[in-house]
Amino acid sequence: MQVAAIQLDIEPEAVETNLDRAHEAIIDAATAGADLAVLPEQFCVGFFAFDAYPTHAVGLDDGLFDRLAELAADNGIALVAGSVVESLADSAAAGYDVPATEGYANTSVFFDRDGTRRSIYRKHHLFGYESAESELLVPGDSLSVVEFEGLTIGTTTCYDLRFPSLYRRLLDRGVDCLVVPSAWPYPRIEHWETLGRARAIENLSYVIAVNGSGSFSAADATLCGRSTVYDPWGTARAAAGDEPTTLTATVEPAVVDRVRSSFPALADRR
């Protein structure tokens, strides 16, 4: 399976501009033969544009999700729609199961090649260190697991990387490929690289860590990019710098099987 990690240049609050960039990158990825595209965390409004979250929050039946579903279907490519600010009240009114009936969530959606919505993931661990995320948003309470192209794919988001117990829960659900839409800033580059590699090594799974690019002057923050695809040994099979780009890599179920058979550490869990 060919994966496209779209390291998008995200402009704060420039939703239409960011969507247009995502649209173009997804079409290019599909044209190049990618089976799955992954967008960064808060790719529409920008993670650090906290004041704009209420203005740009959408329910799961909003036209934004229809647009993303059509984009996947029109191009025959599966899509992890990074994350957006979800209005839980609007989603609840539309009949969706939500962790709260008011407030907002940091929400990613997995669309299949035909535009079918396969899973919804709301970020579990909300960042509290010099960030308004934990004040503004409601944490998720369910897992996202999807069977696709012979792999069992689990979705997590950014700060989740620091909490390995979440990944063990996904492992127990059979996950062998992890996608991590993120908005990871400077200066914590070493954390970003080490944690992504660690989650791959300890779970003997692929990790597709997709970060954004761009600066947020209001928050004095700049995303560090460096999207990376790790194989189950923790080896980087493709890695980006800090500029906007689309990173492509091959992920194969047979590789997971081979690594887990040759180094059966997971069987020694107690």
Score class of each variant (00 low, 15 high):
D35H: 11
A249I: 06
D160P: 00
A265R: 15
R162W: 10
E86Q: 15
W233H: 14
V179K: 03
E252K: 10
D51R: 14
V229D: 03
A183W: 01
G150C: 08
S217I: 12
L79W: 01
E86D: 12
S108Q: 05
T55G: 07
G46R: 02
T194W: 08
S142I: 11
D231G: 05
G33Q: 05
D172A: 15
A209V: 05
G174Q: 10
P253H: 04
F148Y: 14
P164K: 07
D51W: 05
S165P: 05
I120P: 04
A4C: 09
G59C: 11
G103E: 01
C158P: 05
G76K: 07
E243L: 12
T194P: 08
D176P: 03
R199V: 07
D268F: 15
V210P: 00
L223G: 04
P253N: 08
F48I: 01
A5H: 03
R67P: 00
A218T: 07
G214C: 08
T157V: 15
A49T: 07
G225A: 06
D97A: 15
R197E: 10
E193C: 09
C224T: 05
P253W: 03
I27E: 15
A89H: 13
R118F: 13
G46V: 02
A25C: 12
A73P: 06
D220V: 02
L171S: 08
P139F: 08
L60G: 11
N75Q: 09
W184D: 02
D220P: 03
V259I: 09
S261P: 09
I201T: 06
A81V: 06
T107N: 04
T155C: 07
T248Q: 10
H124K: 10
F111L: 11
V84R: 13
S205L: 08
C224N: 09
C177P: 01
L137N: 04
F110T: 06
A254W: 13
A78P: 02
A57I: 05
R122G: 08
D141G: 11
A14K: 00
Y53W: 14
A93V: 10
T235G: 12
